[in-house]
Write a protein that binds this DNA or RNA. Sequence first.
DNA 1: TTTCATTGTGGGAGCGCTCTCATACATTCT
DNA 2: AGAATGTATGAGAGCGCTCCCACAATGAAA
Lengths: 341, 341
Amino acid sequence: MPITLEEIAKLSGVSRSTVSRVVNGHKRVREETRKKVQSVIDELNFQPNIAARSLAAGKTGIMGLVIPAGVSALFSDPYFPQLIQGISSACNKRDYSMMLWVDEPNYRLRTIRQLLYSGLLDGVIISSMLMDDPIIKSLYERHMPFVLIGRHTELNVNYIDVNNQAAANKATSFLIDCGYSRIATITGPINMIAGYDRYQGYCTALDQHGLALNDSLIAEGDFTEVGGYNTMKQLIPHNPDSVFIANDTMAMGALRALHEAGLRVPDDIGVIGFDDSPIASLTTPPLTTMRQSPYDMGFKAVNTLIEIINNQGRSPQQIVLESELVIRESCQRKEFAKEAI
Amino acid sequence: MPITLEEIAKLSGVSRSTVSRVVNGHKRVREETRKKVQSVIDELNFQPNIAARSLAAGKTGIMGLVIPAGVSALFSDPYFPQLIQGISSACNKRDYSMMLWVDEPNYRLRTIRQLLYSGLLDGVIISSMLMDDPIIKSLYERHMPFVLIGRHTELNVNYIDVNNQAAANKATSFLIDCGYSRIATITGPINMIAGYDRYQGYCTALDQHGLALNDSLIAEGDFTEVGGYNTMKQLIPHNPDSVFIANDTMAMGALRALHEAGLRVPDDIGVIGFDDSPIASLTTPPLTTMRQSPYDMGFKAVNTLIEIINNQGRSPQQIVLESELVIRESCQRKEFAKEAI
DNA sequence: TTTCATTGTGGGAGCGCTCTCATACATTCT
DNA sequence: AGAATGTATGAGAGCGCTCCCACAATGAAA
């Protein structure tokens, strides 16, 4: 049987209103009274009923997180666990709670309804959806406070992203600096913004260095290990001397394919990944990659969302994080090692 | 501005009560009335306010999921993503929603309070905590409906687990059947029930086959890749001819250590893992392992929890799933291949 | 016809909280 | 001293829903 405000009030000899003030840290309470009430609260482990509070105040202290189920990378890539960890950590710090929806296509309508109309959520964080995801449009139209993980092309909305184009450009340029010139790429799904942007960065880097795009050296992957493996096998016959791969998980698969094909990394072929996921330093050879931090993105997304909730009039804000090149051994040919640094 | 029952009532020319009946699928409504009301509901996309419903009915349709943050394996192991996916999928199917807490020690008190006293949750699923986790005791004492992922030794509570001891026994016995005899093990953390049970299974298998336990061949890991790598390095000087490793992620690390040491798998040393995680078939050589399905565990946990919620008097029920041996190449020495099958 | 279930519908209380407003009291200024 | 200000507290309404009870309408049984 849960305890109510009223009971705390009775036990500490004040009114319900005063207890409410103490719980919510209002100023207009005498220090003496506050202490008395607080001690009763602590003793009984009182926690206000969220439903009642929510009903009365129109706020719940709960935010939603939506991650896609379609992405099979969800299983094998540490991206989402780290993102969730960052969000969860920030929620704890800011005294929010989190509801999680794994967006299965079959239950999409249910998800949207709950996000928008149940009144349970103060705001929503949406992660890495397809570019034209209808959920985003729904949230936008209903004026539900939300922030995207990953930028959005059409709508002027709040988002947090890494500078994928610049980072991919840097990665590709690094391969060129290392002395490679027949540079392939394994992209992510092109209908995901991160996949698209990293591909664009690859293109601009080649262009800036006067290298021509070569369709036979470009192949679309799906962010999974097996995808990386298969796509690499497809690329090998076209004799790339290096390859920029849009995430580390696919890079693992690509390394496996190269190993099987008897190609030595980095001497026969240079490899650079993206993410600096925990496995990047553990591959053979250790993987050079662009570092991003899903944990930080999650953490910042929460703080941004809370700002939005508290100031609904605010104009949308875009946060773009920088990505850092982490040099290991997968694209450092002996003869170029010095110049590249 | 969300829509209320009252507005639906007005628009369809009936009372609030009748609309409520329609929404909740009560019988005592004339078919004609039901249709009329339903059409208004559909048209306006009406979704009942969960807070109000919860306050009035004492049920929320929300369950909590608590996973530990301490386990750094959270980042690199697909176990939790799969578990979450299973839970989420079952929640969708059963029309429940899920709140997620990553249990950070700093915020433990907050977490417990919210789980128990906020009135938000109909029940809780707790995953893979330490054996003596205080959260479990709190839930138990407060009679909060909950189910554990992983068995509990002291309390008679609802749980779902794999038969870790039997599975570890089978794995170890398989190494013996393959002709190995100097069998090492890398255990999980012994203060986690899964770590403990898999270690026990290893011991009983040796015992049943008349092999002596050898302390220098037993080392405790932490379920991470790096942990597996370091622990394997520690074991190599004692010349095991095979090793049972308590999860696949550590097995990956161990394979890396063996590769660096110039030992060939399976000819110099046999390796068997646990989980059949997605990477198991992708290692070199592909990993023989015991298959378990965190997805299924999550899915079943939800169904069990809902039963408990609907029938609080029910006596606790323990579900133990079987684990299946998946034979690949990491412990099949050429000369024994035939006999082992 | 009268009686009694049975079915469909509406009205009202109340879940536990927040928030506005009223009130009691203390303090300062003229 | 009286008025004006400020501070601490209480009372009451109401958030949107469910659930119980009342009651009307229908049909079956006596």
